[in-house]
Amino acid sequence: MNQIIIYTVISLVAIGAGAAVILYFVAKLFRTEEDPRIEVVEKALPGANCGGCGYPGCRNFAEVLVRSESFDGLFCPVGGNETMAAVASILGREAIEQEPRVAVVRCNGTPEFRSLKTHYEGAPTCAIAHSLYAGEGGCPYGCLGLGDCVAVCKFDAIQMNPVTGLPEVMDDKCTACGACVDACPRGIIELRKKNKKDRKIYVSCINEEKGATAKKNCAVACIGCSLCFKACPYEAITMNNNLAFIDSDKCKLCRKCVPVCPTNAILEIGFPPRKTEPVEKVADSSQ
């Protein structure tokens, strides 16, 4: 009996020792040198693996950051300046600050403003609807409302509003990773500068058709009249292909462009009500 126990213990110990020796040498042999800072940098990143930086995941981005010479063109939109400052201190470099940004849906084609002319019944994705035709509202630039942006958002920051049929960005959750920008087959979503109190002024239309054509499909389309362009004292507005565009980096939120727009295509969001309401403007802004 004792013998059996002794043999068992001895053989187990021998096997264990043998395996340990083999493992030790294998580990030595196949050891790969890795910069230990990669681990540290990765920990400092948000770990969402959203791809907003342009790299497949946080680990990958950490490797790129460690290997890079400077932070030029490297930015984690999710973590923002704070994270980049942390990374910079780990790597002993200067951080490049960037303005925080937020995704903005530049279409306001709610049922109130555009009537639906057809009924789409194909596969329920914007990408396929877009490749098939102009969409239920007839505007070839407008939101198709099938929610490819919602499906791709890793932060639950976009939701479809069942009443308007348009996606809505929740500014507090949006990390500006840009996934929705890429997912939208029509390029409706834009990353714009994040202002105080989430205030925004933007042209909520990307229609480049001639004014009359655009207006036929949607009451709040930009008709390219350039009145806003003339009203802007800061040269923040440019006109291209019958379409006005407000550069969010140049815009000073003076709101001069909003009342001049004949189609209410420019939205102001997050501002207190004007003292002297010129006309009943922007019936449905953000709520």
Binding site: T118, L132, Y133, A134, G135, G138, P140, E209, T213
Partner: peptide
């Protein structure tokens, strides 16, 4: 000019 074709695009 541009006219709407079968796909609704112009």
């Amino acid at each position: 000019d541009d006219f709407t074709d079968t796909s609704g695009y112009r």
